[in-house]
Computed example of a mutant assay.
Amino acid sequence: MKRNYIARRFQLGGTGLSLDTEALSKYKDIIDLSIGDTDFTTDEAIIAAAFRDAGLGHTHYGDPKGDPELISAVCRAWEEDFGQPLSGNHVLVSASSCLGMALTMLAILDPGDEVIVFSPYFAVYRSQIELAGGVCVDVPTYADENYAIDEARLRAAITPRTKAIIFNNPANPTGMSYDRDTLSMLARIAQEYDLLIAADEIYTTYLYEGDFCPIRTLPGMAERTITLNSFSKNYLMTGWRVGVIIAEPELLAVMNRINGALVYTAPSISQRAAIQALSMRRSIREKYISEYRDRIFYAADRIEKIPYLSLVRPKGTFYLFPGIEKTGLDEKQFCEALLERAHILVTPGTPFGVSGAGHFRIACTVGIEHLKIAFDRMEKLSF
């Protein structure tokens, strides 16, 4: 009985986002546009700072809540960037924002509690919700509506068991970013129904229109927002595994207890690297993130010239989410055809929720010279 229960609990399905080593080994000229891992190596100054601090003895267990210097740097950067004071007891350092979201779900959900996600969404959300005993409720957004969040659909999804809304901005996989009107609508609904917002804000520097506004900074939202930040994407530190949770101290206390049963603390060396990264945040945006902006705009321009594809132009991240309705294929068939006929590896839209059907995700994590080869190959195909 216990074994069957465990099997049911983990029948969550693969995310479809893992590295396809079989496909990569099949063709020598494959172009991999499937995984959201930045292709730049972490800046040398960040690596040097971590190396220096390792030599100074930062190789031991640290404070379970996070390196005090890093927490102070996070608070200082938040106030400088967003104008909202932040104290250290509102910050918990986690071993990645992915773990941070899992800690959030484990901390706030009782069995049967519902969490609303806006589909298409980062595929792991569903697994994290279900692992905590919760129920993932898809509220679809659609390409023909520019992936706008519809208030009526959102309200219709709320029940007495709704505990939280996960809000990803800018969004993976669609590349959308949401304006202040959308944030204000979500804030109004969260307060009306007494809901928490789990704000996944890990792509904030990959924003190509306007300035980023954290939903936590809206009136009345600080006490009901759990903000997930990460050094992985904004600072090109995916392998360092360090993120930040910003929330009310009572919530963080529960998360810290759960975290203690899992990993105890984020890697000490990674946290020292993160301190250096925060001090360089503006130069990193200028040096690296501008390159992704050029890639995403180039890729969008190329896709718009391919007759069998459709696209809502992205406003952030380094992802595109083209539609394939003109091909007559489903997303899995199309991705298989793209691999076999053009040696291009992408991700089918199915893992991203109910609105992912009929789409596939491109991660622009190769240089423009490789993107050009990929789109030249795509242009030669017909369906």
Results as ranks from 00 to 15, higher is better:
residue 349 G to P: 09
residue 10 F to W: 15
residue 39 D to I: 03
residue 188 R to S: 13
residue 85 P to H: 08
residue 371 L to I: 01
residue 151 E to Q: 07
residue 219 P to D: 13
residue 14 G to Y: 07
residue 205 T to E: 04
residue 338 L to F: 09
residue 83 G to L: 02
residue 367 G to S: 15
residue 335 C to S: 09
residue 72 S to P: 00
residue 315 K to S: 03
residue 20 D to N: 15
residue 60 H to F: 07
residue 166 I to Q: 08
residue 111 P to G: 04
residue 94 S to K: 10
residue 75 C to R: 11
residue 130 E to T: 09
residue 240 W to K: 12
residue 315 K to Q: 14
residue 331 E to F: 01
residue 224 R to H: 10
residue 266 A to K: 03
residue 87 S to F: 14
residue 276 Q to P: 01
residue 92 L to M: 12
residue 69 E to S: 07
residue 195 L to S: 06
residue 227 T to Q: 12
residue 192 E to R: 04
residue 349 G to W: 07
residue 302 R to C: 13
residue 79 E to I: 01
residue 187 A to W: 03
residue 161 R to G: 02
residue 146 N to W: 14
residue 346 V to L: 04
residue 212 F to C: 05
residue 246 I to N: 08
residue 369 E to M: 07
residue 330 D to S: 06
residue 244 V to N: 01
residue 112 G to F: 09
residue 286 E to Y: 06
residue 371 L to V: 01
residue 245 I to V: 14
residue 91 V to E: 03
residue 339 L to T: 12
residue 195 L to N: 04
residue 335 C to R: 11
residue 245 I to K: 00
residue 350 T to N: 09
residue 89 N to Q: 13
residue 118 F to V: 10
residue 76 R to K: 10
residue 202 I to M: 02
residue 127 S to T: 08
residue 260 G to L: 12
residue 193 Y to L: 00
residue 163 K to S: 06
residue 55 G to C: 05
residue 101 M to K: 13
residue 78 W to H: 15
residue 322 P to N: 05
residue 134 G to R: 04
residue 234 N to E: 10
residue 2 K to G: 10
residue 286 E to G: 11
residue 103 L to T: 00
residue 321 F to P: 02
residue 110 D to L: 04
residue 360 F to N: 01
residue 29 D to S: 13
residue 74 V to H: 09
residue 334 F to V: 04
residue 53 D to I: 08
residue 330 D to M: 05
residue 264 Y to N: 02
residue 267 P to S: 08
residue 157 A to E: 14
residue 328 G to V: 11
residue 106 L to Q: 13
residue 282 R to E: 13
residue 126 R to T: 06
residue 4 N to F: 10
residue 119 S to V: 06
residue 135 V to H: 02
residue 23 A to M: 10
residue 148 A to E: 08
residue 44 E to S: 14
residue 274 A to R: 03
